[in-house]
């Protein structure tokens, strides 16, 4: 493919044109990242008057603290629960919508709507629905003799944030699964039907394996989403509680740094998260760009 190449006569001009983007990247990404790294090596005294350079002590304390280890394990539970729930539901929708002929577009449009809702708004929505005193869902659950209170039960709280976080993501996953399903040639399904495979067997042995590149891509995307983009949802619903039961790593950075004003530890946590992001990005590029081979 040929692209048109522009040759700048003036060597400085291209840099000048790049300047706004570079400035944004520098001020809003590189500078804070650098600050986080720098602060993670410092300890401030209780009054914020002076800071001392403490090498890796913040990190050592972090990984020795039960609440941080707890936060890591909660983050994993949360991320994989969100990825699993949102992908499973999205796949179910996609398979059903894909088998429709006339109403396919209408359903697709409807199913994409939740994606347009801001995370905090989605959080509030579910907060209302699940509110132990005024929410409709606890009321319905109480009829089935199930007592719901996400303010006291960690399991209830986790369920709430998982549902709220997954709900939005279903739309996104749905679109990708639908596209993945439509990319599978119909003749493959027909060949399998002639080969004596019923609908479930066809799904298990043909459709699902052929969707694996999409599934893997979505798994990474959803884990990243659950780990980093769900701050608003947690903030609007459980605020990390009860007793740290939904205090995922991103929320803990905020809770420790902004509320607890422990800048050293909070910065060290940010740096840990940065490493996780870099790791996930590498996975994404290494494997997804090359596509999962079947």
């Amino acid at each position: 493919m040929q692209t048109k190449r522009t040759v700048f006569p003036n060597k400085a001009l291209p840099y000048f044109l790049l300047l706004p983007q570079l400035a944004v990247t520098g001020i809003f990404f590189l500078w804070p990242a650098w600050q986080a790294i720098w602060f993670s090596f410092l300890r401030e005294d209780a009054f914020g008057f002076k800071s001392t350079f403490v090498w890796l002590e913040n990190y050592a304390r972090l990984f020795n603290s039960a609440s941080y280890i707890n936060s890591i394990s909660i983050t994993f539970t949360f991320a994989f629960a969100v990825a699993f729930l949102s992908m499973a539901v999205a796949l179910l929708f996609a398979v059903n919508v894909n088998s429709m002929i006339r109403s396919r577009n209408a359903y697709t449009t409807l199913l994409v709507w939740p994606y347009a809702v801001a995370p905090a708004v989605a959080g509030i929505l579910w907060w209302f629905l699940f509110n132990p005193s005024i929410g409709i869902l606890p009321y319905l659950l109480s009829m089935a003799e199930i007592r719901w209170n996400h303010r006291t039960s960690q399991a209830d709280a986790m369920t709430l944030v998982v549902i709220a976080a997954s709900w939005k993501q279903i739309s996104y996953n749905f679109l990708f699964f639908l596209a993945g399903l439509q990319a599978i040639p119909n003749s493959l399904i027909e060949a399998a039907a002639i080969d004596g495979a019923g609908p479930f067997k066809r799904f298990r042995t043909i459709v699902f394996p052929l969707l694996s590149p999409t599934t893997f891509f979505l798994l990474v995307v959803n884990v990243v989403y659950a780990m980093f983009d769900t701050f608003g949802i947690i903030h609007a619903t459980t605020e990390g509680g009860p007793a740290g039961g939904t205090n995922i790593m991103v929320y803990k950075v905020y809770a420790d740094g902004v509320i607890g004003l422990n800048l050293g530890s909070s910065s060290a946590q940010s740096v840990v998260l940065m490493c996780v992001v870099i790791f996930l990005t590498v996975i994404q590029f290494r494997y997804i760009e090359r596509r999962v081979q079947y």
Partner: peptide, 26 residues
Amino acid sequence: IAMVFQNYALYPHMKVYDNMAYGLRN
């Protein structure tokens, strides 16, 4: 009946052996 499709419709994720064995296994 057995059908041979224009685009062959081979199962891309299965080896030749499994492509041929699929109908028999089912």
